[in-house]
Design a protein around this nucleic acid. Structure first.
Lengths: 199, 199
DNA sequence: AGCATGATGTATGCGATATTAACATGCGGC
DNA sequence: GCCGCATGTTAATATCGCATACATCATGCT
């Protein structure tokens, strides 16, 4: 009669990761506000006290997720840029990668920008964000003459991509079933923006 | 301003408005997550049950605030556009007005975009958002030949402004004490974007 | 094998919130 | 002046969440 379970060990093994996954799952289901440590613990098959061995508190978990998200974003924009030849094309592909990230990792994106946590309290978060931004900034520096212009170019490209991604995630932009096609449809917008000679 | 009674009377007079103000105040102090119906009631000097005479539930209050915010945004971008002569200048000023709105009404902006409410459940919210967007769209239609191009132009301008505003509100853009100066500093970015011939 | 240590469970305190039901009040129309 | 109806209050319910102290388990090191 005893429920025969496949030897669930007392020690979870990788609870930290499991909790982060559960949190993202919750965000996907119930939106950025739908996350709670308790529910995440339950889903990870663990009591509500266990998470505290791995995270200082609820916010700390979110902060780590944001770091992870920034790392993925950095990685993906960098790879996209590497696949192109000219600087302008690199920036274009990086922008597309940003939009793709926002769509494919909507859960991360949601936590990163809509979880309402005070990022300034977490240096690690700021560091990861800076690193992600540096991908674009690095490209802009190769494109522009002065540091000031490069920074301005990078900021505006970043902002455009971020704005498009946000509008998209809110359903303000008409979307079809084909994500990739929609993405390619937005490309011209980025291209026109980047093609223009700067100053 | 608000009809406030010196003597604490049983009936508040304009509780609906008072609650919305209190909510915005809370958001200003504690961020978009820091709002609760209970605390707002307290600040309005009323018990926690009173709000239900004016709003279906917590979300409904937020939804109304979003409508209000969209109305203000619409009004301010429209006025800014009216103050300029050429279409391009009108769009530029509208963009600056967007950024100014995000800075000066950071509380509204926060609720509008970071409160995590499902806007699709509130037609009134969507209507107000559409009306605000129509200001830009209307300008773009005068600037571009086809409807398709106009829409694209409007979307990208909107996205750029929104992205800049968001980055700004997160402290990603260096800011000085002088809000207005910072704003003028961002103008070139918008201008370069708008000056470019489209297609 | 035995022990130190870290990972998890148990029990519990505390606080907060949203929401509803039933009762009270007083403003404004008649 | 009176009474209805909107507006508030009292009171109660149902959750839920965070956090902590302490016991228990299992793993890996020696």
């Amino acid at each position: 009669m005893t429920p025969r379970r496949p030897v669930r060990s007392y020690h979870h093994g990788d609870l930290k990761t499991a909790l982060k996954k559960a949190a993202l799952e919750l965000v996907r289901e119930k939106g950025p506000r739908g996350f709670s440590l308790n529910e995440a613990s339950r889903r990870a098959g663990v009591t509500v006290a266990a998470p505290y061995r791995h995270f200082d508190d609820k916010e700390a978990l979110l902060a780590e997720i944001i770091c992870d998200g920034n790392a993925i974003l950095e990685e993906e924009t960098r790879r996209a840029a590497n696949g192109a030849r000219t600087i302008t094309q690199k920036m274009l592909e990086a922008g597309v990668a940003y939009l793709r990230f926002a769509a494919e990792h909507a859960d991360y994106f949601s936590v990163m920008f809509h979880s309402g946590i005070d990022k300034s309290k977490y240096p690690s978060v700021q560091l990861s964000a800076t690193r992600a931004f540096d991908v674009i900034l690095g490209l802009a520096q190769q494109k522009e003459a002065t540091e000031k212009l490069a920074r301005e170019r990078a900021v505006s490209a970043w902002a455009l991509a971020h704005g498009l991604a946000t509008l998209r995630s809110e359903g303000a932009l008409s979307e079809t079933a084909d994500q990739e096609a929609d993405l390619q449809h937005l490309k011209p917008i980025l291209r026109r923006f980047l093609d223009q000679p700067y100053q």
